[in-house]
Design a protein around this nucleic acid. Structure first.
Lengths: 329, 329
DNA sequence: TTGAAAGCGCTAACAA
DNA sequence: TTGTTAGCGCTTTCAA
């Protein structure tokens, strides 16, 4: 594998000139440019990013911090990030923390050690203190989940309003006994969605009952089933359930079917995220659409902006209630 | 941000000594080690991988080439890759080609330009010529999909046998009119699975009918629905369908429900991959389990071995038929 | 328009 | 055991 010196020698010019044609920059005669390009072709030369990156003190890599790649919610955001990153000549390092602090730390080290130019954090379980300390010297953007007072820019949706509208929809179609399957309230989005749930109930004169609110450690199918099992065991059984993720909703759906009950006739369900699978279930899922792809592109563009040294502002994107079969006979 | 020189100066030693304690290598007195470690702490020094990588001519990054992150089949493999990579101090660059050659080329450039030390290719649509040319000078492993005569090591399963067993299961429970929803036969796995399908039929004296075999461009839900719609339109309607991916199967399932028919009573379905969602549908899906996580760890270990300069052998992993509700009343 | 040379931060061969 | 020094491959300033 040739290096820049050999190309320079072969072309009969200096390395500086080779570098200039490589970067389409500076002033190079058409004649010398051709000499250099010929040499490059002849020697099969590929400029090494290792050298360039060291010289430029950049890696052109964006670190994406997610809890798990298994949740399609994140896959869709990642698609957006990747497309935007590519457009600016960045690439993405995928980092699944599995909510494991040790693993998280390995990934943080990558930016400390200059292997990544910035971070898009989507992990609700991220250690905020560490993240904030890191943000003092590095470019970081929060995506979807965030801490308001961290001073770290974020892109997200209005979780409270989204939950509010989901529950209001259930009330509008006649439900009064509405359960909530939430995730752990240590997460901001969980607290926000709970607020929206409660607000919708109160506004309609429905009492908020503690025994109608459930919490899960993760946002998966199994957790949805387990929570739904508890709900089905309730003496005064709810006629509708609002879950904070489609995966939870799909688990709940399964459990309801298992008990020989029907959705939405016996129990209506609303999910959250509008992942692809929410349209594949039977019945299809009413859910809150988050603009995931857009969230990804925006987060990436914000990060790249920040890396450039620009000020960037946080942004709250629109969501949308998608009414489907699980709430309408 | 301090560099190694400043640490050396602060500690009153040479940069070589700092490098030695950094890499836990060479011979350093406990006393000097402590001096250096103190300096590191004092200056908040973090060694730059940019410098180290240039010096060592390595990036410690593994490039993962997948068609799309949306298919959970790949997510699970990626989990395996990431875990194995991390164990060896490698990180993974996620590259979705979307079966777009232009995008593929951008990613190939990353290894040409030393930004990645090797590739795990899982894209069935990969340009084999380019891949083989690249393999002359770079470490590459094929995962799941492969070209036998490429000379590039692979890890996969026995697709023909897997399909054979899936169809045989359908025959055993009494089906004779069995349709196939396959993907494009330009892919090796599609040809192999078709062979298995045909073999099972022939062995049991069932005629292979061309009008029972369908092809789709992608392995998704929508393609499954469309194919199933055609099957339902058939004059002599099959009583069972073997699909080459769970996503296709889920689409087929949906379409069958839509027509007011029941699975498995009216039509039985077998999927392929055992993605998490195959257990969330109603009914749950009979499917072929691929050891995805294991495939990921093995592929990563093979690649790391290859980067080290070792010979690595291709490997065929076991699969398993998982019988669930979609084939058993 | 081009070239010489310094230097990005690190490792390792060699010398002391 | 430690230090000196030569690069790894590139970009960029300065001078010609």
């Amino acid at each position: 594998m040739a290096n820049i010196h050999q190309v320079a020698k072969y072309a009969g010019v200096s390395v500086a000139t080779v570098s200039r044609v490589l970067n389409d920059q500076g002033t190079v005669t058409a004649k010398t440019r051709i000499k250099v390009e010929d040499a490059i072709k002849e020697l099969n030369y590929e400029p090494s990013m290792l050298g360039r990156n060291l010289r430029n003190s950049e890696s052109r890599i964006l670190l994406i911090l997610i809890p798990t790649i298994s949740n399609p919610f994140y896959s869709e955001i990642i698609k957006g990030i990747e497309t935007a990153a590519l457009k600016h000549n960045y690439n993405i390092l995928l980092c699944e923390t599995d909510s494991n602090p040790e693993r998280e730390n390995i990934y943080f080290d990558l930016v400390r050690k200059k292997m990544a130019d910035g971070i898009i954090s989507m992990d609700p379980a991220v250690n905020m203190e560490t993240l904030m300390k890191l943000a003092e010297h590095h470019s970081i953007i929060q995506c979807s989940e965030y801490a308001l007072d961290s001073g770290i820019p974020y892109v997200t949706i209005d979780n409270e309003d989204a939950a509010y509208r989901a529950v209001k929809h259930l009330i509008r179609i006649g439900h009064e006994k509405i359960a909530l399957i939430n995730s752990d309230e240590k997460f901001l989005y969980a607290r926000q969605r709970k607020l929206g749930y409660q607000k919708a109930l109160r506004e309609n004169g429905i009492e908020v009952q503690d025994n109608y609110m459930f919490h899960t450690q993760e946002l998966g199918f199994d957790q949805g089933r387990q929570a739904m099992r508890k709900i089905l065991d309730l003496d005064d059984r709810p006629t509708a359930v609002f879950t904070v993720s489609d995966l939870l909703a799909i688990g709940a759906l399964k459990e309801i079917h298992q008990h020989g009950l029907l959705v939405p006739n016996d129990i209506a369900i609303v999910g959250f995220d509008k992942i692809d699978f929410s349209n594949m279930t039977h019945p299809t899922l009413t859910t809150i659409a988050q603009p995931m792809y857009q969230m990804g592109t925006i987060a990436a563009n914000m990060l790249i902006d920040k890396i450039k040294g620009n000020e960037v502002d946080s942004i709250v994107l629109d969501h949308e209630l998608i009414i489907r079969e699980s709430t309408s006979g």
